[in-house]
Design a protein around this nucleic acid. Structure first.
Lengths: 359, 359
DNA sequence: CCTGGCACTCGATTCTACCGAGTGCCAGGG
DNA sequence: CCCTGGCACTCGGTAGAATCGAGTGCCAGG
C-alpha cells in the first residue's frame, strides 16, 4: 500500500489534491479548492501554510505571487511513487483493448503501427511502440532473388518472423541457377545463427556463385550492423492539444520525428528501471515539458520491446500507466508463442475489402 | 510562355506583387507596398482602385475593412498558373539533392522514408512520398518459412523488389520438407503472375503439402487485396510553424495521420492532372487552409508513385514545385532500371548553365 | 495548532484614448 | 479618359488606467 514516505500525511494529501486538480483543470490550484477537496478537513489558511512548506521543499511552485500552486516535477514524482493508486482501465477501454487484440491481424509492422494507434486512442496522448530488437534472433531462411539483369534482392527471415531485405548490385549477369545455388549455400551457412554470424565454407567451385555469396554475406553484415531502430509513433497530433504554445508543439514533434532519439529515450528510461519519467528526469531537453510513461513488452519472460506514452507533465499518470501496461502485456502475449488470439480461433480471412482506388 | 489570360497586365502585376509579398511576410499587403514593388509605376491610389476590382473578381480579399489585401485561393491559382516563373533550386539545395541520391542506399522503404525527409528539409514544408503501387508487379519468388511449431511465414518477393509477408497459423505441425515442397509448388504456380492470380494445379499427393499450399494461397489473396497504401510523411513538425492557430495544426496533423486520406488526396490531385491544389480545391475540408504540391515519380515512363508537399496556402509555390519535381525525377531514376547511383545519367530537360562540381 | 480576518499582490479583463496603416472617394491635371 | 494627390474615415493594435477577483502571507484570538 502506498504510504507517505517523507511527507506527513496532511502534506501528502494536499499535494495529491493539487496534482489531481491540476491534471484535470490545467489551472494553478489555490488553497480554497484544496480545502474543498475530499479528505481534507482543515481551513484554507492551514492549507496555505502547508503549501508554503511544500513549495519550500520543492513539491509545488507558484507561477507568480498570488496565484495558485502548480506541481513541480518532484511533486509529480512523489505523486506517482507514493500517492497515486494504480489506475484501472474503464470497462469501455478494457473492451477496446480486447477487441483490438482479437481482431488484429496481418504483419508485425502493421500490427505495431496499429497498436500505437490504439494506445494513443485510449489515452489521447501520443504513443510510441518500440518493436523487439531481433539482433539475437537466429536466421531461419536466406534467399537471393533475382530482380533484374544485374540486380538481386537478399531476403533473410529471422526466427521471430522479421524479414530483412536488401538489394544487391551484381557485377555481372547471373542465372537463376547461380542465385539458387548461392541461396542454398548461404542458407546452410547462416541457418540458426544470428544475422552477422554466418561463416561460409570455402569455395563452391563456381566463381559466379562465390561472388554472389560474398556479396550477400557483406549485405547481411551490413543489415546486422544497422541497428534497425524503427519506432512506431501514434497520434502525434494529440500533442498539439496538450500544449498551448505552438513553439512547444513544434519542438516536441520535431524531437519525436527523430526515431533514434525516441528509441534511446525509451531504452534509457526502461534501463533505469522506471516506468515514468517526468519533465527533465529523462534528460532530453526538448522534451522537458513532457512526461513519458513506459511499459515493457515481454514474450515468455524475454524483453521484447516496449510501449510508451508521451504527454504533458500534467498527464493522467494512473490512467496512462494502466493503459500502457495493459497494452504492453497484451501485445507481449500476442507476439509470444501463442500467436493465436485469446479467443482461440485463428483469424478468419473474411475481411476482404475490394480496394481498388479509382484507377 | 505564361502571359496574362483574363487579367490585364497591370492587374496581373499587382496580383503578383501581393502574392509574393504575402508569401514572404504573412501580413496583409497594402497599396503602398505594392506601389513600391518592382515593375509597378503607378501611385498607390491607382493600385487601390485596381485592388478593388481584383477583390470584386475574387482574386483578393480583405481580412477586414482598412486592412491590406490577402490573396484568395483563386488568386494563388492565377499566380501559379500564369504568373510564377518556374522556380529553380538554389545551388545549395541542388547539391543536397545530388548528395542524397548519391549516398542513399538500403531498402526501398528506408529510402522513401529518407526521401521524404529530404523534401521536407529542402522546403521546410511537410512532405509526402507515395510509393509505387505494386498491384501489377509479377511475383518473383514465393517461400514458406517455418517459424514455430504451427507457425509459418509466407514471404513473397515481387519483381519490383517489394517483399510481402504474412504469418500463417498452421493446423498442425509440419516438417520443413513439407514447407519446402509447398514453396516449390507455390513458386511454380505464382511465378511471373501478379499477386492474386496464381492458380495451383490439383493435388500433390501429400495432403499436408496441399493444406499449406491452400493456406498460402488464401494469404496471398488477402495480401493482394489489402491495398498496401502506405505513405511516408516527412517533417510534420514543420506544419506547427506554418500556422499560428494551434487548433489548425492539430486538425491538419491528425488528417495527415490517416494514411488512406493522404493517399487518396495525392491520387486525386494527380488524376486531375494538377501539380498544385490550393485550399479547398482538393475537397478535403480539414486541409482547406493548406496547399498541396505534387510531382509524379515515373520509372521508365511508368507511373511509380508520387512525391508531394503540404504547406499553408501561402507557400512558396515555385520553390516547392521545383523541389518536388527535382526530387520526384531523381527518385524515379533511382528506382528505375539504372539502380546505380551514377548521376552520369543525362540531366533532364531543364536547361541550366550553372556548372556544378563533377562527381 | 488551527482558524477567521485582513491587507496586499498581481494577472486578467475592461475601457479609453490614440496611433497609424490602409481604404474609398473625389476633384484637379496631364 | 485615366492617373494622381489629397482627404475623411475605418478599424485593428497598442498603451495606460481602472477594476475585479482569486489567491496569498500574516496575525491575533480561540
Amino acid at each position: 500500500m502506498p504510504d507517505t514516505q517523507d511527507l506527513d500525511p496532511r502534506k501528502a494529501a494536499i499535494l495529491e489534491a493539487v496534482v489531481t486538480e491540476y491534471i484535470g483543470s490545467a489551472q494553478p490550484v489555490g488553497s480554497h479548492h484544496v480545502a474543498r477537496a475530499a479528505g481534507i478537513n482543515v481551513s484554507s489558511a492551514t492549507i496555505r501554510s502547508e503549501m508554503v512548506a511544500l513549495e519550500r521543499e520543492g513539491y509545488l511552485s507558484q507561477p507568480h505571487t498570488s496565484a495558485g500552486r502548480i506541481p513541480t516535477d518532484k511533486g509529480y514524482r512523489f505523486f506517482v511513487d507514493q500517492l497515486a493508486e494504480p489506475g484501472v482501465l474503464g470497462p469501455a477501454q478494457r473492451q477496446k483493448v480486447s477487441r483490438f487484440f482479437e481482431q488484429v491481424h496481418g504483419e508485425m509492422e502493421e500490427m505495431l503501427e496499429r497498436t500505437s494507434g490504439l494506445l494513443s486512442d485510449l489515452t489521447s496522448y501520443a504513443s510510441v511502440v518500440l518493436p523487439p530488437g531481433h539482433e539475437s534472433a537466429p536466421v531461419r531462411s536466406v534467399q537471393v532473388v533475382g530482380l533484374g539483369p544485374r540486380l538481386a534482392l537478399l531476403v533473410v527471415v529471422l526466427a521471430d518472423g522479421a524479414v530483412e531485405k536488401r538489394t544487391m548490385d551484381l557485377a555481372e549477369d547471373v542465372t537463376d541457377e547461380v542465385l539458387a545455388a548461392a541461396s542454398a549455400r548461404l542458407q546452410a551457412a547462416a541457418q540458426s545463427l544470428p544475422l552477422g554470424a554466418a561463416s561460409v565454407s570455402a569455395s563452391s567451385g563456381d566463381p559466379a556463385v562465390d561472388c554472389v555469396v560474398a556479396l550477400a554475406r557483406a549485405a547481411m553484415a551490413e543489415v546486422a550492423a544497422e541497428a534497425h531502430d524503427r519506432v512506431f509513433v501514434g497520434g502525434p497530433s494529440r500533442l498539439a492539444s496538450a500544449f498551448d504554445a505552438v513553439e512547444t508543439v513544434r519542438a516536441v514533434l520535431s524531437t519525436l520525428e527523430q526515431q533514434l532519439v525516441v528509441v534511446s529515450l525509451l531504452r534509457d528510461v526502461l534501463e533505469r528501471g522506471l516506468s515514468v519519467a517526468i519533465g527533465a528526469e529523462h534528460g532530453y531537453e526538448p522534451l522537458s515539458s513532457c512526461a513519458v510513461v513506459v511499459a515493457p513488452v515481454s514474450v515468455d519472460g524475454q524483453n521484447a520491446g516496449a510501449v510508451g506514452l508521451l504527454g504533458p507533465t500534467r498527464m493522467n499518470y494512473p490512467q496512462a500507466l494502466a493503459a500502457a501496461r495493459a497494452v504492453g502485456e497484451r501485445l507481449g502475449q500476442r507476439l509470444g508463442g501463442s500467436l493465436d488470439p485469446a479467443h482461440g480461433a485463428p483469424v478468419p480471412s473474411g475481411a476482404r475489402r475490394r480496394a481498388h482506388g479509382r484507377g
